[in-house]
């Protein structure tokens, strides 16, 4: 089996957490430097952890989106590979156009750390443990997590079933309570909350375990 690539940029700070979580779920994680190119064929899936890539200068995720490794992430995604971006990783995917919309300053302007309840709004085969309407409880920690997108695109997201996760009690003013979305092809996923912070008994919730993916043959790059 090929390893799972975990991308790290200067300023990424959830990299170790995501690496440990992925390993704990039974995957074989391997580091990928966001500043260099990599060979997409060498990986089974790609994870983009959270943090403050390039200090969040310009806009969150904007500089990382233009890094060499993201060109290869794009090739990987276009070939059907599974990509999951968490928090800043979600912002990077939006900035690079792999996911529609943008994540902007929270309503109220403040960083927010909390546990939230998420509703699974659409079931994807790729996440077999996240059945439709399931409620999961995992933490958020972000200042720029308010999802926004133009009305036509929102309608398309909803019609095509790309809205993956919604907040039960919207913490940041996200449009349509959106906490996570997928691309049209349903192989690239982003979410603001942190499943990698909830998978051990002492973490207050173990619901982060439900996010283990199961790939099908069309996800093999």
């Amino acid at each position: 089996m090929k390893p799972i690539g975990v991308l790290t940029f200067p300023g990424t700070n959830c990299d170790e957490d995501v690496f440990k979580w992925a390993g704990h779920l039974g995957n074989e994680p391997k580091w990928i430097s966001g500043q260099d190119h990599f060979e997409p064929k060498d990986y089974e899936a790609l994870l983009i952890p959270g943090g403050f890539s390039y200090g969040d200068y310009l806009r969150c995720g904007a500089l990382a989106a233009r890094s060499p490794a993201m060109e290869d992430v794009r090739r990987f995604a276009q070939a059907g590979g599974f990509v999951l971006g968490i928090c800043n990783g979600f912002q990077i995917l939006c900035e690079s156009g792999l996911l529609p919309g943008a994540l902007v300053r929270n309503e109220g302007g403040l960083f927010r750390d909390d546990f939230v309840q998420l509703r699974v709004t659409n079931y994807f085969k790729i996440f077999p443990h996240l059945s439709d309407d399931k409620i999961v409880r995992i933490p958020i920690a972000h200042g720029e997590g308010r999802y926004t997108v133009d009305p036509q695109e929102l309608k398309k997201l909803q019609d095509e079933g790309q809205v993956w996760l919604s907040y039960a009690d919207n913490p940041n003013g996200s449009l349509g309570d959106i906490a996570g979305i997928s691309n049209e092809n349903k192989n690239v996923f982003g979410l603001m909350p942190h499943p990698e912070r909830a998978y051990q008994p002492w973490m207050d919730s173990e619901d982060g375990r439900f996010f283990q993916w199961k790939l099908s043959s069309k996800n093999i790059v």
Binding site: N13, E16, W21, F111, D113, H194
Partner: peptide, 25 residues
């Protein structure tokens, strides 16, 4: 105040600032 602080980055936090003592694993 403490809701503006990231309390779990590094995934060592067993008890957060919501409690009178923090604990890290």
């Amino acid at each position: 105040i403490y809701r503006q602080y990231d309390q779990r980055v590094g995934t060592r936090t067993v008890r957060t600032a919501s409690q009178s003592s923090a604990f890290m694993i």
